Amino acid sequence: MARIILLIAVGIFAWLAWQKFQSSAPRERRKLLLQWMLIGLALAAVLLAISGRLHWVGAAVAVALPVLGKSLRWLTRHLPWLAPLIARRAQAKTEQQSGSDSTDKPPPLSVDEARQLLGVSAGAGREEIVEAHRRLIQKLHPDRGGNDYLASRINAAKELLLRDL
């Protein structure tokens, strides 16, 4: 009877976990999988300890500790050789990012380009400009699959048109 209750509980937990996994964003899925694996390992260890079958886990830990110790000693011994490579790579990455920021400035918008970008007429009022901006930014915002360039152009168009009112 206890096994059936345990099996039902595991089934419900698996179903809830699957629903959460499907509804989560792709960025969060890896984190969820890691958390669930750790929870599953902890539950398995508890169940093995309760049932008296934890002896093989103890043996695996006893074998893994010396191997882990030797691996860490090997890494610390060879880390000085890796440190300059890692530092050079990080420096090149920061130089590339700082260099690309200064050369990628978009050209300034004219009033006609701003109107065309937002899709408003020449006699558009404040409310129409704000609504057109809101509609476009919801579609093209970087958090929703757009990119920084388009979002910055849309924001610049709104600011330019509202400034000229």
Rank of each mutant, 00 (worst) to 15 (best):
A64N: 07
E127R: 01
A64F: 15
I8A: 05
K31R: 13
G58S: 06
A132V: 01
R134C: 00
A60K: 10
G40V: 09
L165A: 12
G40Q: 06
D112P: 00
Q35F: 14
L47F: 10
A9D: 03
V61C: 11
A14V: 00
V63I: 14
L72H: 08
H141G: 01
R115C: 03
A92N: 10
A60V: 15
P108H: 07
R73F: 09
L85Q: 08
L85D: 04
G52M: 03
G145N: 13
K93H: 14
L118Q: 02
Y149D: 07
A83G: 05
A92C: 05
Q22V: 08
A151V: 05
L6W: 04
I8L: 15
K93R: 15
L75A: 14
F13E: 02
L118D: 01
S23Q: 13
Q116A: 03
P80G: 11
L38E: 03
G52Q: 05
L6M: 01
Q91H: 10
L79F: 15
D143I: 06
I86G: 11
D104L: 07
V67M: 12
V120E: 02
Q96W: 11
P106A: 15
A25H: 13
I129M: 02
A49S: 13
D143K: 09
G40D: 10
A60S: 14
A25L: 10
H78P: 07
V130F: 00
V130E: 02
P106C: 03
E159C: 00
Q22M: 09
R135C: 02
V120P: 03
Q116C: 01
A156Y: 04
H133W: 02
S71Y: 08
E127L: 00
M37W: 11
R89E: 11
S98P: 03
A59P: 03
G123E: 12
I50A: 12
T103D: 05
K20G: 10
H78A: 12
K158H: 03
I137M: 10
L109M: 05
E127S: 04
R3M: 10
E127K: 00
L47W: 10
L47E: 09
